[in-house]
Each structure stands twice: as structure tokens, then as C-alpha cells.
């Protein structure tokens, strides 16, 4: 083999970047031809001078010179495919002048694939005397048949009298908790003045809950914070400590148990995470109206997918009531196709 190794990861989330590199003996002079599928774009090339690159044809790249012999690095970008699971192939053709060898590297590009299984025409909010609480008699059934995690958030049309908001007992805790985090962030800014603008953005975003471009803004802020914690462990520890202190300053036994319950409910299936699971949906007495639910979907890399507008649901509640948001949903489990293939089914 002319090279020591060719690295391409086995899988990557769609829309994300993935890396690759080739290592070979420093004494060997090689040229490398890279053939890419049309949906994969090369976005960074390391250790190659501009005069060492030739473009013989579309989607093909020939590399003939390297600053430091023995290494070349790549970063590729993927697109959003129609299919939730696609395997692409990159061909590396390597020659030392006398001998040429070809290496094919496959990569699975996956994503979540959230499906609405059923939406009831009518949901009635009833009272269970034995459990001393209200419940929905029908549920919105959803499942993720893709391989990646779907992080979902549920919104309703603003015109309705029905409201989604944190339960009263937790609202006070949340407000105090956010206030404590924000106080902690002021101290953190003094400890890490280099990151003060990122810390300030992080602190601000906690108070913004209704902004329309929240997803993009959130992604942007979190990418900045993640970039810092990736290289600065002291900052990571300080940030984690501030969040823990804020929590323990405000928690009580009830919040501890309520939050544990919420934690369990929000992760009903490992493949769907309900983002605003802590919130309740409240109905005034004599509610009888059509409600439009919207499901906003993101993934673990904060990529946003087209949201799903559910058909209108008639919601009836004779008395004033409130139920946890997660009680409106049933997360159906289904094994992904990849897992079945891995199992040989």
C-alpha cells in the first residue's frame, strides 16, 4: 500500500461537515486524485499549495505538491438529502509514478425523519379522580424513523385562548434559576474577559423565549460557546460550576422530583427529545376551539428542518385545566433501517 492510512468517518449527520486525511511515508512522492460525488463539496484543504492543485474535470481534484510531504487534510460539507439515509462514496486514486492504487471510502449520511402517525380530530381534556389530575383522552402520535435524534418543540397559534407556559410551581424556579445564571455569567465575564461578548450573548439568550429567529440565534450562540469550551477546559469547568450553583441555589425537593419526572418524559424515546417538555398547556373553562399545532424540528448539530403544521384539532375542556405538554404526545418507537441492516435483518 502506498499510504499509511486514509481516514474518512463511517457516518455523519446530513448538512454537517466531515473530515478526512491521508498519511504516507515522508520520503515517498505521491500524487493523489480525489473523485467526489456531486452532493459532497470540498470546503477546506490543508498542507497543499495552490500550485499543487489541478482540476482535471468536475468533482475531481488532483494534488501534486504538499508543503510537508506525507500528509494531506480535507474537510467536506454535505447537503440535506431527500432520503433520511444515504451512502456516498469518495474515490482516492494514489500514484507514485510507477504504481497506482485506488481506495474507495463510503460514508453514511443520516438525519432524523419525523413522521406524524395520527392526529386526533378532537381532544377532550378530562379529569381523572383517582390520579387527581387532568389528562388528554387522545394523543398526537409521532415517530422518528430516521437514524438521528429529532429535537422537537411544539407551538400553537397565538390567537387561541389556550396557552403553552411553564407550570406555576416551576415558573418561579425557572425565573430565579435564569436570574442566578445571569448573575453567575457576570462573574464569569470578569474571570474570562476574553470571552465576555460570548458569555453576554449566552446570558441574554436565556431571557429570549418568544423571538422568531430564536433557532438561528440559539445555534449561533451555542456554536460560539462550544468553540470556546473545546479549547479551554478551565472555561468549561467554570461554566458548568456556575450552572450547577444556579441550580442548587434555587432547587427544592419538589423541583428536584418534578424535574426528574420531566426528564423522563422528555426522553420517552432516545430518538425524540421534546425541547419544551417542562411546559404545560392550559385551557380556560368551556374551551371548545380549533387549535393549530406546529412542530419545530432541529437536530443535535442545531440544524433546523422544515417545521410540520398539524391539521387543526378541536380541543374541548369544560373546566379550567392544565396538563403537561408531553401528555399531548405519544412517541412511537421504531427501529431505524440502519439498525436492522447492522443486525442483518
Amino acid at each position: 500500500m502506498l499510504v499509511r492510512s486514509i481516514y474518512v468517518p463511517e457516518y455523519c449527520l446530513q448538512l454537517e461537515k466531515f473530515p478526512s486525511h491521508i498519511l504516507w511515508n515522508k520520503d515517498d512522492n505521491l500524487s493523489i486524485v480525489l473523485t467526489l460525488p456531486k452532493n459532497i463539496e470540498l470546503v477546506n484543504l490543508y498542507n497543499v499549495p495552490a500550485d499543487g492543485i489541478e482540476l482535471p474535470k468536475e468533482n475531481t481534484l488532483k494534488l501534486t505538491k504538499f508543503y510537508e510531504n506525507g500528509y494531506v487534510g480535507f474537510v467536506f460539507k454535505t447537503i440535506a438529502y431527500d432520503e433520511p439515509s444515504v451512502t456516498e462514496e469518495i474515490i482516492f486514486s494514489i500514484t507514485n509514478g510507477d504504481y497506482t492504487e485506488q481506495h474507495s471510502k463510503k460514508i453514511l449520511l443520516f438525519r432524523q425523519n419525523l413522521k406524524i402517525i395520527s392526529v386526533p380530530d378532537i381532544i377532550r381534556i378530562k379529569y381523572d379522580e383517582t390520579k387527581n389530575k387532568h389528562f388528554a383522552d387522545e394523543k398526537i402520535r409521532i415517530k422518528n424513523i430516521g437514524s438521528g435524534i429529532a429535537i422537537i418543540e411544539s407551538n400553537i397559534n397565538e390567537t387561541t385562548s389556550i396557552k403553552i407556559k411553564p407550570p406555576i410551581e416551576l415558573l418561579e424556579f425557572i425565573n430565579k434559576f435564569i436570574k442566578s445564571i445571569q448573575d453567575g455569567m457576570v462573574i464569569l465575564s470578569e474571570e474570562f474577559p476574553n470571552y465576555s461578548s460570548e458569555i453576554s450573548e449566552f446570558s441574554d439568550i436565556l431571557s429570549f423565549r418568544e423571538t422568531k429567529d430564536i433557532e438561528n440565534r440559539f445555534k449561533n450562540v451555542m456554536e460560539k460557546i462550544e468553540a470556546i469550551i473545546n479549547v479551554d477546559k478551565d472555561f468549561l469547568e467554570a461554566l458548568s460550576t456556575k450552572l450547577s450553583i444556579a441550580y442548587y441555589q434555587n432547587t427544592e425537593m419538589l423541583t428536584e422530583i418534578e424535574l426528574f419526572k420531566e426528564y423522563l418524559k422528555s426522553s420517552e424515546s432516545g430518538k425524540i427529545l421534546l425541547q419544551n417538555s417542562i411546559e404545560n398547556i392550559s385551557f380556560p373553562s368551556n374551551t371548545d376551539e380549533k387549535v393549530d399545532f406546529q412542530i419545530i424540528i432541529t437536530d443535535m448539530a442545531h440544524n433546523t428542518y422544515p417545521s410540520i403544521d398539524l391539521p387543526s384539532i378541536r380541543v374541548i375542556s369544560t373546566e379550567e385545566s392544565s396538563i403537561p405538554l408531553y401528555d399531548l404526545f405519544e412517541f412511537c418507537q421504531q427501529e431505524s433501517q440502519e439498525m436492522k441492516e447492522i443486525r442483518g435483518e
Binding site: P9, E10, C12, H21, N47, E68, Y71, G148, E338, M339
Partner: peptide, 23 residues
């Protein structure tokens, strides 16, 4: 670079890679 998610459910594996930009 790293993966943010994994398609493997049983004993999930997360890859990561670091390389020199300009050795």
C-alpha cells in the same frame, strides 16, 4: 471535527478527528 450524533443505537460510537492546518 466530530460527529454530533450517531446512527448506532447499540453501544453508540462517536468519532472525532484533529489535524494540523498548516504543519
Amino acid at each position: 471535527n466530530k460527529t454530533f450524533d450517531t446512527p448506532i443505537d447499540e453501544n453508540p460510537i462517536y468519532w472525532m478527528e484533529a489535524k494540523l492546518k498548516h504543519p
